[in-house]
């Protein structure tokens, strides 16, 4: 195991592609840490907190809350931005190895070349110089923010935390995530790209 006997070896090990089971375990580890810190892991309430900070509580009761109970989430979100910076700067790995079937479909049906954007984002669509991308970005973000609050949680709150607590409402919400996601992927996106 010479590979892991010096720091660079560790970094190489971290920057390579992770097996899905390693990633799943790591996410369970984060759930454990958040739970041990005494909070229920969920990200989307950060959008609500930002509304409250912007003063939405003055007019709308829904946004009136004591932020002292929410600063932890904003600290977490700030960390997530920092983690993204660290990962992209120091731990950049090979392009995301999506399946050949998906690559073919993107090329033939959407006219998207792959790999691009480091395997993270179709930059030809989602960038500030593409009006269509900007419109889709605004619509997509809006749907996520609206749906998450309507359903009282997003992927972290329902699919990870809620399901780990064996909550039926979370299971139903996750089924909803897939109804919407499948409709977008199979019915709407072919009309858009």
């Amino acid at each position: 195991m010479e590979l892991v006997s010096y720091p660079q070896g560790w970094i190489n090990l971290l920057s390579g592609a992770w097996h899905w089971s390693v990633s799943g375990l790591a996410i369970a580890g984060i759930l454990f840490m958040m739970t041990y810190l005494g909070r229920s892991f969920g990200v989307s309430t950060a959008f609500k907190n930002m509304c409250t900070i912007a003063g939405a509580g003055k007019k709308y009761e829904f946004f009136r809350s004591d932020l002292n109970n929410d600063y932890w989430r904003l600290a977490f979100v700030a960390g997530a931005i920092g983690g993204g910076f660290i990962a992209s700067t120091f731990l950049a790995g090979p392009d995301v190895a999506i399946s050949a079937a998906t690559i073919d479909h993107l090329q033939q049906d959407f006219g998207m070349a792959y790999p691009q954007g480091g395997g993270f984002l179709p930059v030809e669509i989602f960038n500030f110089s593409n009006p269509k991308g900007i419109i889709l970005t605004i619509i997509g973000g809006f749907l996520v923010g609206f749906g998450a609050r309507y359903g009282q949680g997003c992927t972290s709150g329902h699919a990870i935390t809620g399901l780990s607590h064996l909550q039926l409402p979370s299971l139903i919400t996750v089924i909803g995530f897939f109804i919407g996601g499948l409709a977008m992927t199979w019915l709407i996106m072919p009309l858009l790209f």
């Binding site: 996520v144 749906g147 998450a148 009282q152 089924i175 909803g176 919407g180």
Partner: peptide, 19 residues
């Protein structure tokens, strides 16, 4: 929850990112 989840899912699939 089905309705809300579906709205979220539409955005999730389009953005390729949840919150």
């Amino acid at each position: 929850h089905l309705m809300a989840g579906s709205i979220f899912g539409l955005g999730w699939a389009l953005m390729g990112a949840c919150p």
